[in-house]
């Protein structure tokens, strides 16, 4: 176990290192970082100051060392627009994004998992066919367009729900649906396939041979095992939703990280964009690490296969 954690942690560090290298290289390959790191129309002395601060006049390896050191000490630059450190802005928005992502995850769980389960238990039955249609449309309907249509129907025509902003639970409904829609469909697919695989296993056969009631076989022996990959996906997806719900947050004026990124693009606030990307990457890598270790505890098979 200890060996697994060690190996997995090293792996994550390498991933983070390559991630930082990628961002560093891409920025320098596509233009002058000093221009990006200063406000549009900056004076020459400002440019010089930024160059000195980030060591942009030195050779690339030293520049990279600078860059890495700044990240490691938590200095991701200052947003032009907010005049605040990017990391502060990020963590200020994090709770909002987390709230939306949790709500979307919950919603997609409530739809995707039972539907996937029903599909798997009655393969090729009516539920399975409905499930297939839902899965297919879920993957084909862009979440942001769904958001727009929801606003049109429930805010403009029916005037039931507010169009956006942060407020009470009613503000959460539409963004959660728009954000969770795609994920509900993928949960459905995964639950179904995972459940089908589990139900073919020898231990399910043994559970039936024991003469257990059908619901015990399905709900306890089957579902509990089928849930392992489903929960893994949910964990990974939650952290992606927190960081990448750009369009849904923009459409519903939700003050989260995605919207922060959008503001960064819109106002040509490069330090903000770069900072959010770096932080999002770090967070995802770390949460993945955490989930892997957690599941290695729950399910010993993971430890053995990786």
């Amino acid at each position: 176990m200890r060996q697994f954690i060690f190996r997995r942690t090293c792996y994550s560090i390498v991933t983070l290192f390559i991630l930082s290298l990628t961002i560093f290289a891409v920025v320098r390959l596509t233009g002058d970082p000093a221009l990006l790191m200063t406000e549009p129309g900056a004076r020459p002395e400002d440019l010089a100051r930024v160059r000195a601060l980030w060591g942009l006049d030195r050779p690339w390896p030293i520049q990279y060392a600078h860059f890495l050191l700044n990240i490691l000490t938590g200095d991701l630059g200052t947003s032009f627009n907010y005049r605040m450190p990017v990391s502060e802005l990020y963590f200020e928005r994090l709770p909002n994004s987390l709230q939306l992502a949790l709500s979307a995850t919950l919603l997609s769980f409530l739809i995707g998992v039972p539907a996937g389960l029903l599909s798997a238990v009655r393969v090729n039955g009516a539920w399975d066919n409905i499930g297939k249609v839902v899965a297919l449309t879920g993957l084909a309907v862009p979440g942001f367009w769904l958001g727009l249509v929801l606003i049109l129907v429930f805010s403009v025509w029916l005037a039931w729900l507010p169009t956006g902003g942060k407020g009470d639970w009613r503000n959460l409904i539409m963004p959660s649906i728009a954000l969770g829609w795609y994920f509900a469909a993928s949960l459905l697919r995964l639950t179904r396939s995972s459940m089908l695989e589990v139900m073919r296993s020898e231990y399910i056969k043994l559970a039936r041979l024991k003469g257990l009631p059908g619901y015990v076989v399905i709900a306890m022996h089957g579902f509990k095992n089928a849930l392992v990959p489903v929960l893994t996906l949910a964990g990974v997806n939650l952290v992606v939703m927190v960081n990448a719900a750009v369009i849904v947050e923009v459409i519903f004026a939700w003050p989260g990280i995605g919207r922060l990124l959008y503001e960064g693009i819109f106002q040509r606030d490069f330090p903000l964009v770069q900072g959010v990307v770096i932080l999002a990457g770090c967070m995802i890598v770390l949460v993945n690490l955490f989930i892997d270790i957690l599941y290695a505890y729950i399910d010993p098979r993971i430890r053995l296969t990786k």
Binding site: I18, V26, I265, V277
Partner: peptide, 17 residues
């Protein structure tokens, strides 16, 4: 490493550059 970044966030980052 590249798979770790959400596709859309990565694409936005590259697009701004």
């Amino acid at each position: 490493a590249w798979l770790a970044l959400p596709a859309l966030v990565f694409a936005i980052f590259l697009a701004t550059l």
